[in-house]
Structure formats: C-alpha cells, structure tokens
Amino acid sequence: MQICCVKTHKVISTENLQFSYPNGGVQLRFPDISLDKGEELLILGKSGIGKTTLLHLLAGLLKPDSGFIKINDTTTQSLSNRKMDRFRGENIGIVFQRMHTIPSLTVIETLKLRLYLAKKKKPYTHLDTILKQLNLSTHKNHRVTELSTGQLQRLGIACAVIHSPSLILADEPTSSLDDDHCNQSIELLKSQAKQSQSNLIIITHDTRITAAFDTIITL
C-alpha cells in the first residue's frame, strides 16, 4: 500500500522488469526506473544487451514476463492490445534510430496523420511552430522521400513530440550522426521535451552524449 502511494508521485516507474524472447535465449532483467514529471534519463548499454527490448517494453510493444511498468498511473502491461495502441498514441512518442516514413505523404501530411492517429486535435498553427523550430518549414509540402537524413531525423523528432506526450522514448537517436549533428539533435530533443513537459528517455550506446544528462542508468 505504501509502495503504491510512493509510486503515484512518479510519472514513469518500472519495477523488477524481466523479459525473455519466446525462442529461448537468456532472461533479461532490467534495473528499475522512476522519473518525476519532466525528468530526463539516459540509458547506456552495449549492443545486444537488451536496450531496444527495454524501449519496446516501455512503449508497450512488448509485454514483460514479470514486474510492472506504470506510466501516468496506468499499469501498461495490463492493458488490452487495443487500449495499449490508444494509450501509446496518446502518451508516448518514439524517435527511432532511422526515421522510417510513409513515402506517399508529405512532411505536413505525416504530422497531420500522426495527430489523427493519436486522436489529438491541435490547431495547425501548432504544426507550423514545430516545423519552424525544427527548421523544416520550407519542406512542409515536400514528399518525405525527398528529405535528407538530417531532415528525416528532425521529422522523426517532430512526430514524437507533436502531440505533447508524457513520455518521449528515443532509440539510438545519434548513432548515425557526426558530432555536430549529434549535439544538435540531443539539444532539439531536450528542448522539445521541455516545451511539451514530457519525460525524455534516451537509450543508446553512444557515450558522446552522457555529458548532457544528469541521470544515467547503465545496463
């Protein structure tokens, strides 16, 4: 009971998370995470240690074998698939290592679809603001297939923050970037997270960015 009350203060908390893939393999155990509103976290780990697995667990794309994940007082692993889809859409934004897109859409259409699927109604001026901040305004009506890697990365960030989620998860957002772009992108992520008052969790093996974070968990 007491534990429960302590947990409610936290926006995001996990406890005793364990997961193993169905085709055998080792049992993965993850350290507990507990973040207050607006807090940032960097999770460092080498390849193959289960970083992406942890991110997918947090995003509700995988379900843990044991332990629990709480986001905004919702124990996500107990949600049905449909409710989880909805919850994810509304409360979580994910930045992927490489931004994959829907090639038939333009930049602005991608963001509109993102909002539609998250079931959030935001004025389109809001979209313009974000595009401006991410330096994508001039490419607003370009097909996503015409964008450069850097632009795609920024679009990925826009997609993750546009609906002001409680939690932004970033999976290796800097691994394919040079030092300059690496810092730029982390700054962008941090500023966008702050703006939408979201918690930011970055999962990476890239030690270049450790300096930018106060809280670091090493797997």
Partner: peptide, 16 residues
C-alpha cells in the same frame, strides 16, 4: 510492414 508498424506506434489500432 515497417510503415504499418510505425503507424501502430503512432497509436493506430490493428483495425485501422
């Protein structure tokens, strides 16, 4: 499949 998976992370349901 990646595109569709991406849409799922955006909050799209299977039904959508």
């Amino acid at each position: 499949s990646y595109e569709l998976a991406l849409m799922r992370t955006y909050g799209a349901s299977r039904w959508q």
